[in-house]
Amino acid sequence: MVDKLSNSIRYVLRALDIPKNFYELVSLQDVGIKEFAKCLNFLIEEGVVCYNKKLFSLTEKGVELRKKFGIESALHCTSCRKSLLLDKRIKNIFDKFVEITKKRPLISHDFWQEYMLPIDVLYRVEFIRSKNDLENNKFIIIGDDDLLSIALALTGLVKHVTVLEIDKNIVDLINFVAEKENLPITAMVYNVEQALPEKFIGKFDVFVTDPVEAQEGLKLFLSRGLCALKENGVMYFGITSLDTSHKKKLNVQKFLSKNNCVFTDIIKNFSFYGEDFQSSSVKESYSRTKLQELFSFDIGSPDKDWYNSHFIRVQVVGKADCANKEILLGKRLYVDSDVVTFVEEHV
């Protein structure tokens, strides 16, 4: 019997004002997929939610529960996107940037790659600009398969962008485009397990990364960036509510607080990542993820973009105090007990 509602249950009751498939439902939850799975399985067992033809909907019991607790549909503005309008200068680089992204190699699951939608890369640039962190600043990016460095440089507003990236194919593409377009970018091959090169310590105004989400790997990415920042520098990073539980977020928050960092902005569900949903290999891979193992029903494969991350801005107060040494994590760089959206043989 459901007589007390957790936030997860309230989310499901609110979200199912109309039937939704698994990926629509899981995309915007915020407790982590493993915790959400317990909630969804419980509601099905209790007869609050039914699952039919790959769609979730409320049963009569679920509808009555909504009424009992006064849960109404959430209203969202559909005419504005991300509460931001792209600056004219950023709008003007969209077509060129999209053409450049088409030259990227196929994603490599060995490096945990998933390409962000080009428009969402530009929204990241716009958000950075809106926080007064774009103009005349030196950036360092660790991991740049999304080609954020190129989008930043195409604005003509940044002083320089340094990219540290493990995939040589991405490094070669960035350097090729930088030379062709005369952009202030330097990219080099780098494994985050290595100590940050001494020449980069304390040299940058802004650090940006989309880190891996295993806890040890995530903290390692952030620590490398903190080492690279000048006093009172700024960090931006993406993090999901899919492979990241509240407990893990709390541990990351404690780690950053210990290093003199304060959170200034958290923009939820800000960046989406695209896939070829008609590809048989993409569809088949979903059946082999740890994600499927959490549910008693067939989660199928998505038919539109669903995997997304929040975008976080962190201000360093003074200087961070991170050790800069080689740390070999092996598989733990990519995987922990929270991470379920991966195919086992890729790690």
Rank of each mutant, 00 (worst) to 15 (best):
I44Q: 13
K20I: 03
L58R: 06
I33L: 10
K91I: 11
E99F: 01
L86K: 08
K102I: 11
E72S: 12
L65G: 02
L55Y: 12
V26E: 13
I93A: 03
G32P: 10
F97E: 07
S108A: 02
L75F: 06
N52S: 09
K67H: 08
N21H: 08
F111P: 09
E35K: 13
Y23W: 07
S27Q: 14
V31K: 14
F22A: 06
V48N: 01
W112D: 15
N52Q: 13
G47D: 08
C77M: 10
V49C: 01
Q113L: 04
Q113P: 04
K61Y: 05
H109N: 12
I93R: 12
N92F: 02
Y115G: 01
A37V: 10
S108V: 01
I33D: 08
L65M: 03
F97D: 05
R81E: 11
V31P: 09
H109L: 07
V31S: 13
S73H: 07
E64M: 10
E64Q: 15
N92V: 00
D95H: 12
F97G: 03
N52C: 02
G32N: 04
G47T: 11
A37S: 14
K67R: 14
L84K: 08
L86Y: 00
F94R: 14
F36W: 05
F97L: 01
K34A: 08
S83F: 08
S73R: 15
T101P: 10
R104T: 04
K38N: 15
R104C: 04
C80V: 04
H109C: 02
V63D: 05
I107R: 14
R89C: 03
G62N: 02
D110E: 15
F22D: 08
P105Q: 06
K34P: 12
E114M: 06
L43A: 01
E35D: 15
P105H: 03
K53I: 11
G62H: 03
V48I: 14
H76I: 12
E60M: 06
L86F: 05
D87F: 02
F56Y: 08
R104N: 06
C39P: 01
I33Q: 03
F97C: 01
K103Q: 15
L85E: 13
K102E: 12
K82A: 00
Y23V: 09
